[in-house]
Design a protein around this nucleic acid. Structure first.
Lengths: 220, 220
DNA sequence: AAATAAATTTAGACAAAACTAAAAAATAGT
DNA sequence: ACTATTTTTTAGTTTTGTCTAAATTTATTT
């Protein structure tokens, strides 16, 4: 695996993200995303095409090649592992981690990242609930479903919370639920739609219908 | 505190290190240290002079200004904290940490570094026994003395081991002594010059004269 | 389908950081 | 004191990544 400059990596990552929405990425879109000028984008597209990371014919937009996607997943792996580290170990809040990880992600030392992964206990999702690619670049495609739709006895990872008020956060903290928590539903009660939830091997506890409706879990 | 490019930082750090030996640093010395050409050094010296980090008159060599020294200490703080992290948390060996820290040190985010420092428990020395500047850029000037010369009941930090053979390392590991370990001498026996050593509040244990002669501690 | 607008690319310039080759200053040797 | 040598600097290029302004292609509208 070759090495790419910080600038090249930022382009590759931005293209990867834009591809998730539209399948063809345009010059203007990318310029806006990277806060740069369309002319600069065209210059870089030529370079990335020459390095076979990109399929690109002029005026036609572009997509990453398989190789380009692999490189993107490597960058995203580094970014999300650092985000996890910052939140979990250094106690940054979830809204602060992205900016710092933007810099750390460009340190490309495979041993560093694999040892960091191990130190962190091979986390599956970052503090925003986005999945972390593994050492081989495999990423779990997970769809988010509401906790109310999770089948009984099927473990899932908390991916996001729709309401971001301090009231819900206080409750979640009390119940020891945060993004990345792996849990399962042990029982549902039809009377009030409350449910018994279990985290790992700890004793199960109850959460209300209202709370469950605001929790989304990742399903693979 | 302004921000400097990776290249500028590498020059500043190299000048700082060379200044410890000679007090005037020359163009050729610096070019050799950075594996670059003298002409490139001259170019950069002009730039750093313009930024008031350097005292420099042409053909006269150069020294960092007070401001330049402050910047250097910031870089060294980052470098050594990352080295400590890599060795202590990620289980890199002491000879692997330098290279990786060379990259990590250029991520200049004060909050990141201060939180890392806290997470690591405010270590005083890196895995090579070199002191780590604090958040204000203060560095403890410590001189290394042989463990045989450490006064009784005075704690000191292990800074280096003169013999690097696997035999001594095996013994040190068994006694739970490594670089950075804080210890004190509780008693010396004149008969064989062996001594009783204590680490923290653990029970004291004995080390031989031969071992003590190869251990150097930092004294402030 | 021609005219206009929008998006994209080209051409040329610039800044940072490096290099080579040549010139200038300092040091050393006789 | 005058060469010769070493060190340092200058001048001119190169590469990477950016930019502006102009040209070109594609898309839209009437």
């Amino acid at each position: 695996m070759l090495n790419y400059s910080t600038s090249e990596e930022n382009y590759i990552k931005a293209i990867y993200h834009l591809q998730q929405m539209d399948d063809m990425v345009t010059t203007n879109e990318l310029a806006a995303e990277l806060k740069t000028k369309p002319a600069s984008v065209t210059d870089m597209m030529k370079k990335l095409k020459a390095k076979k990371l990109l399929n690109y014919e002029r005026y036609q937009g572009f997509r990453l090649t398989n190789e380009g996607n692999k490189v993107a997943l490597g960058i995203i792996r580094r970014h999300r592992l650092w985000e996890y580290f910052l939140a979990e170990k250094l106690k940054f809040t979830w809204d602060e981690v992205h900016e710092v990880a933007e810099d750390l992600e460009h340190v490309t030392n495979k041993k560093l990242i694999d040892k960091l992964d191990e130190f962190l206990g091979f986390p599956r999702v970052d503090p925003h609930g986005d999945p972390i690619p593994d050492a081989n670049g495999k990423i779990e495609i997970m769809k988010k479903i509401c906790l109310t739709e999770l089948p009984l006895n099927k473990t899932a990872i908390v991916g996001s919370v729709s309401d971001q008020s301090s009231k819900i956060l206080e409750l979640l903290e009390h119940k020891n639920i945060s993004i990345g928590t792996r849990l399962e539903i042990k029982k549902r009660f039809e009377f009030d739609n409350s449910m018994e939830v279990r985290i790992g091997r700890q004793p199960a506890f109850t959460i209300s219908k209202q709370l469950a409706e605001n929790i989304f879990v990742l399903n693979n």
